[in-house]
């Protein structure tokens, strides 16, 4: 036997889709029973405008982790407002794996996602606000501290504030000291907040 050059540039096999499919064809392929077909469609949709809605719609129902991964990458590369809003909406899903994947994906979104973050941090569901803090964690944008300070100054929910304090413990500077002291006063009877805030204060002061 030997080295052979047979298939590298031969015509595509039957299971490989023909190139330059229309947006409507690709959208239909998102509903195919074969995960490979769905993945391929999601990758190719990158070059079409206004496809984020269809991708998000599939994402919310998709059970195959590899297909979800590809859909999310395409949404992040599209990075249009409906991609960001659609992914944010998935944070309400009961599927913990999907929520975690979305948190990571929004963390990768380029450009300004302030509007999305502000909406999430103002959500009536404290779980969604916690996920918003997780997104701040994954994005590590330069102004992360000011966002976290706003959370611990304003949010009324113990667990939301605790999540923000946890992250401030890593990224906080002296600017966070006063807000942390005020947070202790707001939640004076909450042992965990006292502990977490003290830990963050000690870390920031370097003691």
């Amino acid at each position: 036997m030997a080295f052979v050059k047979r298939k590298a540039m031969e015509p595509a096999p039957a299971d490989v889709p023909k190139q330059e499919r229309s947006c409507a064809e690709l959208t239909a392929c998102l509903e195919d029973s074969d995960p490979q077909t769905r993945r391929q469609a999601a990758r190719e949709m990158l070059h079409f405008p206004d496809v984020s809605g269809a991708l998000v719609s599939r994402l919310r129902r998709e059970q195959d982790a590899a297909v979800r991964e590809v859909i999310l990458t395409t949404l992040v590369r599209l990075a249009d407002p409906s991609a960001a809003a659609g992914m944010a909406e998935c944070l309400r899903s009961e599927d913990a794996a999907l929520r975690n994947e979305v948190i990571e994906a929004i963390g990768l979104l380029s450009g300004d996602v302030s509007a999305t973050l502000r909406t999430l941090l103002a959500d009536s569901d404290p779980d969604v606000r916690i996920f918003a803090v997780n997104i701040l964690d994954s994005r590590r944008q330069p102004d992360v501290e000011s966002w976290l300070i706003e959370v611990i100054e304003k949010d009324v929910h113990l667990n939301v504030c605790a999540t923000a304090v946890d992250l401030l413990c890593e990224v906080g500077t002296e600017a966070a000291l006063e807000p942390l002291l005020r947070l202790k006063v707001r939640f004076v009877s909450e042992v965990f907040i006292q502990f977490a805030a003290n830990r963050a204060i000690k870390r920031i002061r370097g003691v």
Partner: peptide, 22 residues
């Protein structure tokens, strides 16, 4: 030299890798 086939591919372009399978 003849044991290797060389081709141009941009990994960031889905259409470029469409025919690379198996």
């Amino acid at each position: 030299r003849q044991a290797v086939e060389f081709t141009r591919v941009n990994l960031s372009e889905p259409a470029d890798t469409l025919r690379y399978r198996n």
